[in-house]
Amino acid sequence: MKELPLALVEMRNVHKWYGKVHAVDGVSLTVKEGEIIGLLGDNGAGKSTLIKILAGYHRPDEGEIFIEGEKVRINSPSEANALGIETVYQEQALVDVMSVARNFYMGREPVKRAVFLDKEKMNECMIPLRTLGLSIKSPDLLVKSLSGGEKQGTAIGRAMYFKAKLVVLDEPTRALSVKGVQTVLDLVKGLKEVNIAVIYITHSLHYVYSVADRFVIMDKGKIVKDIRKDEAPLKELTEVLIG
């Protein structure tokens, strides 16, 4: 008999207040291994607060978080990384004025003789990037010379390389060209193939509909809809979003 896939991440009855604003109001969310979730909602719906709790930026005021069945407290971004949760913010994932290799290993630099950066090892970042189909010419290129799709790819490739179990993408297609968007959507599918779960945050269904397995729609801090794609026609989802 086949076992049910274990819940990778489970958030139970999570609350967060900012002063009087109830930014996250009793949210319970489960993410399974290799599942792609489209997290939708208007600005101020509570999507980013929820994700920042998961990424270790904020502590929940109430509620519990379980990773692979074990109760955890995520106190910092590095603790989230250690638990296998990587968040990729478009504006915040990479340092523009640093090279691809230095960005790739940022915070986890390989060293030799205890202190010196192991540059040869750092150049190996080109292998996972090529596997993702990115044609970045050199690990020494500054990130600002990359295209939008390549930047996203570098951040996603980094998450894969460091064995993330869940990658959170915040508006990954914002300000991308059509080709860049396709690159990102292919990357998301690539993550699923290697059993990495994805939470894809966006406020439009447009691109996410083609890749997501499930849609979670938030409004005023609450989840108003949590539905699998095979049960959710595009039209109905659009109505909930606009409604």
Binding site: A55, S76, P77, S78, N81, T87, Y89, E91, Q92, A93, L94, V95, D96, V97, M98, R102, N103, Y105, M106, G107, R108, E109, V111, V115, F116, L117
Partner: peptide, 28 residues
């Protein structure tokens, strides 16, 4: 020069100045 360009600390200095949020997100 050794500290800034060839050590882990140096990479964190550049990251902190280049994009503090990105550096924090990567656990620096």
């Amino acid at each position: 020069v050794l500290l800034l360009n060839f050590s882990r600390f140096g990479n964190h200095v550049f990251a902190t100045g280049g994009n503090k949020e990105a550096a924090r997100a990567m656990g620096i």
